[in-house]
Design a protein around this nucleic acid. Structure first.
Lengths: 110, 110
DNA sequence: TATATTAATCGTAATATTGCAATGAATTAA
DNA sequence: TTAATTCATTGCAATATTACGATTAATATA
């Protein structure tokens, strides 16, 4: 049904999957990496940088913004985007807790 | 077109997005958390634990296995799954590099 | 005001994902 | 051998995602 049964899972599990999902497309990964790389914020340069059409980039930016990972600031006719630091840090906490689960104590049975 | 243009991105960007995508569903997050939680490996108990139908769980396990994050071991009529430690650690390295990009030096322009 | 520039939105086509009933394959138990 | 158990696979319906052309909205400039 293309629809995840989110009600069966914990808030934490759903939150992890929402963050992960937004990283689940290379264009959004590339956008975020570019926003990290350049000290100044990027606007529509992302369209040239990434190589996808403007509406496509705009759509990806919307998803990143919707999750709160980036901020957009209108400057004349262009829009300047940058990483939302506080939210990025909060996201890292959630993801790190999931990724850094303890492995050492478990014996391999497979 | 529902199809990511992977050829436009670096191998690293594509790898990050593939790992992230598999975490982009709460059922797979729940499966992995459960495999971490119980010291012994789980078999079809995951079906009871998670609450989705058996073919659905089987499909999610297949995706996790395909990415190398879990291993499956046939034991009689049941199959025992567990985390693939080495591959999990390698995945963490890739994801941590992406998530832990340096934030402190950048000034907020938005 | 008229025109250019920039980015968001709309609409749509192509493809992917999710979930499960039905079925099949492999093994074990009677 | 037959039946039961467990899990994978198949097939399909419902929904989501990706990408982009066309358009719109907002601002800046001539």
């Amino acid at each position: 049904m293309g629809l995840a049964k989110t009600e069966m899972f914990t808030d934490q599990q759903n939150e992890i999957s929402l963050f992960a999902k937004v990283f689940g497309h290379p264009a959004r990964v590339a956008i975020l990496q570019h926003l990290f790389k350049i000290n100044s914020c990027v606007c529509g340069d992302l369209v040239n940088e990434i190589g996808l059409a403007q509406p496509t980039i705009s759509q990806h930016l919307k998803e990143l913004k919707h999750l709160g990972l980036i901020k957009g600031n209108v400057e004349g006719t262009s829009v300047c985007y940058c990483i939302h630091k506080e939210n990025w840090t909060a996201m890292k906490t959630v993801m790190n807790e999931f990724l850094n689960q303890d492995l050492t104590e478990k014996q391999d049975c497979c």
